[in-house]
Amino acid sequence: MRPATRRKLTPPLVVFAVLRAVVIGGTVALAFGLDVSHNYWMPIAAMVVMKPNLEQATLAAARRLAGALIGALRSGVSVPGRRPGERPGWMPCAPGRVVPRPGWP
């Protein structure tokens, strides 16, 4: 087994450690201060989302944002045009493909 070695404290490493501490502390303060249900999940989610280095965290955040925007645009295209209480006669299943909903003529 290799002995544990200390990493040299570089300015980017210190900034990331401080940023991570602020984010975890902020989520703990929000979760327990607002008294939301299942409040222990908020700090756990923040720890999972924070990647080991800032470049990975930035890339993951950009991918999540892009996925959220694509999902919002896709739902915005398929939902408008319906009247309240009306079910669509089609169901999007893949980009560019539409299949009839079962039970509709």
Rank of each mutant, 00 (worst) to 15 (best):
V99H: 08
R87D: 03
V48W: 08
W41C: 05
L13M: 13
A66G: 02
P80Y: 06
A61R: 14
S78M: 06
A29T: 13
M47Q: 12
G71P: 04
P52A: 08
S78P: 00
A66N: 07
A61D: 08
V79R: 09
L13Y: 09
R64I: 12
R74D: 06
M91Y: 13
L54M: 08
L65V: 06
P80T: 01
A68Q: 13
G71K: 12
A68E: 08
G85S: 00
V99G: 03
T10A: 03
V79W: 04
R20L: 01
P95Q: 12
L65K: 10
P43D: 11
G71D: 11
G85I: 10
A94F: 04
E55P: 00
P92A: 07
L13Q: 05
G33A: 10
R7P: 01
G25F: 01
P12E: 14
L54Y: 06
P105R: 15
A45Y: 02
K8Q: 09
V48M: 10
R2N: 10
W41F: 06
V79S: 07
L54D: 00
K51I: 01
Y40W: 14
A31M: 02
V14D: 05
A68W: 14
Q56H: 08
G26M: 03
R74A: 14
L13F: 10
L73M: 03
M1R: 04
G103I: 00
V79P: 00
T5R: 14
Y40F: 14
M1E: 12
W90N: 10
L34A: 11
A45W: 05
A31Y: 04
R97E: 15
W41D: 05
E55A: 11
V79K: 13
N53M: 01
R97Q: 13
M1V: 12
P12T: 15
V14C: 02
P3K: 03
G96N: 06
A17V: 05
Y40T: 02
P100D: 14
P100R: 15
P102T: 15
R6I: 07
R83S: 09
I44D: 02
R2K: 12
G103T: 00
A45R: 07
K8V: 10
N53S: 00
S75G: 11
L59D: 11
G96Y: 08
P95E: 13
R97P: 03
A46R: 03
W104T: 14
P84Y: 15
V18M: 06
G103D: 02
S78G: 01
D35F: 08
W104S: 12
Y40R: 15
P80W: 08
I44K: 13
P3L: 03
I70F: 10
L69M: 06
Q56R: 15
C93E: 15
V23W: 02
A57F: 15
G76S: 09
L13T: 04
T58G: 13
A66Q: 11
A61I: 12
A17F: 11
L34I: 06
R82T: 04
P12F: 13
P3E: 10
L34P: 00
L19K: 09
R63T: 12
R74Q: 13
P12G: 11
E86I: 13
A61F: 14
V36Q: 05
T10E: 04
K51S: 07
R63E: 11
T58M: 13
K51W: 09
A46P: 01
A62F: 10
G103S: 05
L69P: 00
G85N: 07
G76Q: 03
F16M: 08
I70D: 09
